[in-house]
Design a binder for these strands. Structure first.
Lengths: 156, 156
DNA sequence: ATAATTGCAAAGTCTTTGCAGTTTG
DNA sequence: CAAACTGCAAAGACTTTGCAATTAT
């Protein structure tokens, strides 16, 4: 698959960015970015990522994943969001999108950032508040659950 | 202050609602609702609430606060939101508002729910997603921090 | 009475930290 | 070589749970 090749290149670009920012390129980080890229659109927890990374490099510890994510986030390469409850989910920072989280079935719907453009303008005008580009979650009911009447299947 | 009297009445109304839903009225719950009401607009964590409650009833345990909040939430009297990081904040469900959280200074700005009405309509039309009335947090930069360039003071 | 609630202590999740040993630039 | 990174184990913050005793209805 030529997609794999494209992804590999993308990883190298991100690593170059990391190095330029004073970070160091290690196999753990390479695997981490590859996993993030492969997930493409999925929302991965640190746990998920650790498992993915460990498929390629079994010795990488969960705490290393946390620290690598922190580091990558500091450099603006990765971003995280809290989708309800407690766990954070991570994604590459270069895919601007917002999340709609269903409070009942936990489904996550991604929405292109520009859907929020109008709201962002309003908020900035009225409150001087600048909406973050990658850190946004709206909780509600997805289409499938919107009709259901039972109480939320799980709290957010 | 006549305000105190109004609050007391409000607490009783909520307790009546609780009782009608099959819940039981206890001094812990009365104190909890009173604290929630007194906070009026502040965002209290379970910890905060426990401390407030304990000023009136020193024996109330943190876990009781958690359980009481769960119970009240189930009955639609209380709602919680996650403002970044992990901790949840609670408030009475009858004060519809949304939260803008500053990712840099952690300030919380409250916004009347209707500011989001247009977005809600859009999301429902395009995705069938029904935005929750009381469970919503937008992360970004508050007016004071919007200009600042340093990295976020604390992650959300 | 009897089902809900509570206090307390213990356990659980998710994340962070201290340290000594490795690796990268 | 110096600074950054890593593995591991231990600690931390926040929340949930099991149980026996208590209390509201």
């Amino acid at each position: 698959m030529t997609e794999q090749r494209a992804d590999d290149e993308h990883v190298e670009v991100l690593l170059a960015r990391l190095r330029r920012s004073g970070g160091r390129v290690t196999s753990a980080r390479r695997a981490l970015l590859a996993s993030l890229l492969a997930a493409d659109g999925h929302h991965l927890t640190a746990q998920d990522l650790a498992e993915a990374v460990q498929r390629a490099a079994p010795d990488v510890h969960l705490s290393t994943v946390y620290r690598a994510l922190d580091s990558l986030e500091e450099k603006g390469i990765v971003a995280h969001t809290h989708l309800g409850h407690g766990r954070a989910v991570y994604h590459l920072a270069d895919e601007p999108h917002q999340h709609l989280v269903c409070e009942r079935c936990q489904a996550v719907v991604e929405v292109p950032a520009d859907v929020f453009a109008e709201l962002a303008t309003t908020l900035e005008g009225a409150y001087g508040f600048v909406v973050g580009a990658h850190h946004f979650a709206v909780v509600g009911r997805c289409a499938a659950c919107a009709g259901a009447q039972s109480e939320p299947a799980a709290g957010s």
